[in-house]
Amino acid sequence: MIEIQCTPKDNGLIVSVTGRLDTATAPLFDRKFQEDVVGSGQKRVVLDFSKLVYISSLGLSSVLAGGKALNQRGGELVLCGLGGMVREVFQLTGFATVFKIFNTPEAALEEH
């Protein structure tokens, strides 16, 4: 239902999320994000949503909580690869302006 893969780069961490971020999977996302992303100490984090096919409000809450956790440590969370319903949900909720959004992980790390 959800797969989360972290790829460290010289200038930040890319977190690829595959599948769905919803009521069923958000608790796992939250745990992984806390342990592997916030716990890594990386301040530059890109959430790659190019393989995310569905997100609900609970998923948005998780993304927001992740962004806040990084902010509190002087880091920043940016997003890339939003398509289909994920992009629409971000627009409908105003989340598209809450986070910086890029087309690719490379562009997101460069601009960071």
Binding site: S57, L58, L64, N71, V89, L92, T93, V98, F99
Partner: peptide, 14 residues
């Protein structure tokens, strides 16, 4: 923005 944004009412808004 990220720091101020809450999630209350988000689901119902959607």
């Amino acid at each position: 923005d990220v720091a101020q944004r809450g999630v209350g009412g988000l689901g119902i808004h959607l």
